[in-house]
């Protein structure tokens, strides 16, 4: 699990370089992605399904991205965009098309539904993350200065 989180951090770091994130912000962006992947794994181990785990991880990712953005005075996008990639259902797209081609309709429907659920959960995670008013974040910063 530790190796997985480290790999996720490196993956997010390299993708933030692909999106030309300013060099001094790459570390924070990568850290954010690593934390999100850790929380995904953690929730999965507690027995949550992929959709619920994605929801929790995305929510945490978005909130942390907003905190970092406040702290560093940069747009939220920088910390959010690369970090979302481990959660995006790339494997869902692959297996859905694979089962479709193999005419394994039962698995195709199951995997396709799961992919849509995960995409929806990511959407909800981002929306909830942004729905929290800025005041709470400012309050959190004042209470726990870092």
């Amino acid at each position: 699990m530790i190796l997985q989180v480290i790999a996720a951090t490196f993956a997010v770091a390299s993708f933030s370089i692909l999106f030309s994130v300013p060099k001094d912000q790459c570390i924070l962006a990568a850290l954010n992605g690593g934390i999100a992947w850790f929380s995904y794994l953690f929730l999965s181990q507690l027995g949550a399904g992929p959709a619920v785990s994605s929801l929790g991880a995305t929510l945490l990712l978005t909130l942390l991205a907003r905190l970092f953005a406040l702290h560093r005075k940069h747009p939220v996008t920088i910390y959010l965009m690369a970090g979302i990639f481990p959660l995006v259902p790339g494997s869902g797209i692959y297996y859905t098309s694979y089962y479709f081609i193999m005419s394994d309709m039962e698995s195709f429907v199951a995997k396709g539904t799961e992919t849509f659920k995960v995409a929806g959960a990511i959407a909800l995670g981002i929306i909830f993350g942004f729905a929290l008013p800025q005041k709470f974040l400012l309050f959190a910063r004042r209470k726990f200065p870092y």
Partner: peptide, 22 residues
């Protein structure tokens, strides 16, 4: 299958999805 899943990651529309939701 794992190789393909890893390698299609640069193509996967993560950015478009995030932007559209926002």
């Amino acid at each position: 299958d794992k190789i393909v899943i890893g390698d299609i990651m640069p193509l996967v529309p993560g950015v478009a999805l995030t932007t559209s939701i926002r």
